[in-house]
């Protein structure tokens, strides 16, 4: 479960604005968090509180393969990203590091910046408490559910390797 204030952005939020390359030389979560969303919303890093929610439009996380992008959002304190769709490398990276993402075009379009939203990760239900509307995110395939349940790809693989 997560409940927080939404920070809403448009379509094609790319990894260069999520975490600009000039900060990739210091890949600690704390350093990345300081500059998260800097080139699209310089106020984000100081305004975001633990449990808040990032909302994007279509093709969220397009561009580079830098895992630093979901790492930065996770380290900033955000609980999850809701978007209409995700670029595929960002999608993989978020799942692989155990950071929740929800694909839901209706919610991504309707939710406004500043709305208070509650998300149930096990059912995929998204409730915009500000407007009273409820949305249903797409379910993950069971295999991906397993990765998420282990907290990411490597813990999942290690558990399997260790039998």
């Amino acid at each position: 479960m997560a409940r927080g204030t939404c920070f809403k952005y448009g379509d094609n939020v790319d990894t260069d604005v999520i975490i600009p390359a000039r900060y990739l030389n210091a890949p600690s979560p704390e350093e990345l968090a300081k500059h998260c969303m800097e080139d699209i919303d310089p106020a984000y890093a100081t305004a975001v509180k633990p449990g808040d929610i990032v909302v994007g439009g279509w093709n969220f996380g397009c561009g580079s393969s830098r895992e630093h992008a979901p790492m930065a959002i996770q380290a900033s304190g955000a609980a999850c990203v809701i978007a209409a769709s995700f670029a595929r490398i960002f999608y993989r990276n978020a799942i692989n590091i155990g950071f929740p993402i929800l694909e839901c075009p209706e919610a991504a379009e309707a939710i406004a910046s500043g709305d208070t939203v509650a998300v149930n990760f096990s059912t995929g239900e998204i409730v915009d408490e500000t407007t009273g509307k409820t949305y249903q995110a797409a379910a993950f395939p069971p295999f991906i559910e397993e990765i998420i349940r282990h907290g990411g790809l490597l813990p999942y693989l290690k558990a399997r390797q260790d039998g």
């Binding site: 561009g63 580079s64 393969s65 830098r66 895992e67 490398i89 993989r92 990276n93 692989n96 590091i97 990411g152 790809l153 490597l154 693989l157």
Partner: peptide, 26 residues
């Protein structure tokens, strides 16, 4: 490849795709 432009090698008739660092580690 942990670089999004890993798809370049498709020019040679290979399947190649960009992934993140965790996928590289795996």
């Amino acid at each position: 490849g942990a670089d999004s432009h890993t798809c370049t090698y498709g020019a040679l008739g290979a399947f190649s795709t960009g992934v993140g660092s965790t996928d590289m580690a795996a």
